[in-house]
Amino acid sequence: MKVVVCVKQIPDPADPGEIDPSTKTLKRDVKLILDESDSYGVEMALQLVDGDGEVVLVSMAPNNEVLAMGADSAILVSDEALAGSDALGTAKVLAAAIKRAEPDLVLAATESSDGYTGTVPEQVAELLGMPSVTFAKEVAVADGTVAVKRQTEAGYDDVTCPLPCLVSVTAGVVEPRYPSFKGIMAAKSKPVDEVGIADLGIDAGAVGWAGGGQEIVAIEPAPAREAGEIVEDEGDAYERIVSFLEELKVI
């Protein structure tokens, strides 16, 4: 079985750096790390393949850390024209790169930890003409079919889907392994297929700032947290807390 995992480098959330006022996006001139939410898909892929098959990474930024976890190879799309790509532009590029690998299964995180659009995996599936299953908390593959427990607000749905397909996995689906010393050293000699958008048959006008179908109009700092409501217990505090939580529809 061949599994492709989409992975992304993001600024370290502990030190994300500044926002560029001209582009209204993060400058990304700080240390970049593997998006932790992607590490679950990588671990899932390694466990599903379990030495009998291949795990290929697809990314728009170099990422040795994931190769060090044990993936076999990577396709790296690198092109100046990609700067400023929105979700759909990103999906077009990833879909074209994934097509080169001809996978049985594509795994992705439900959303990235920097952009948080949460739409790229489904757009990729649509562009590839594949079925997609989102929010997987358990994934099993057998006889050309993937069985997924799909996280819902109330619990989970059992979903089955023929391969090839795309599955987006939630954090906690598996416990990601740490890259080992041996993995780090071995990653240096693993094949990385570096391609530009022309190699993928994509027109520069369809991606990046030029191809953006959406525009960031304004960015505002998050509002300061307002003071909460203090419940003094006069014997009925639990009732008031329960009704407050019911109002919020969290219970």
Binding site: D29, K31, N64, E65, A68, Y178, P179, S180, F181, I184, M185, K188
Partner: peptide, 24 residues
Amino acid sequence: MATVSSPYADPDREAFVDTVRQFT
């Protein structure tokens, strides 16, 4: 701003130490 590293810096070593840091 890029940080100035040490003369002994090596990417493989740093990757391993990063792993140990996360484990810790």
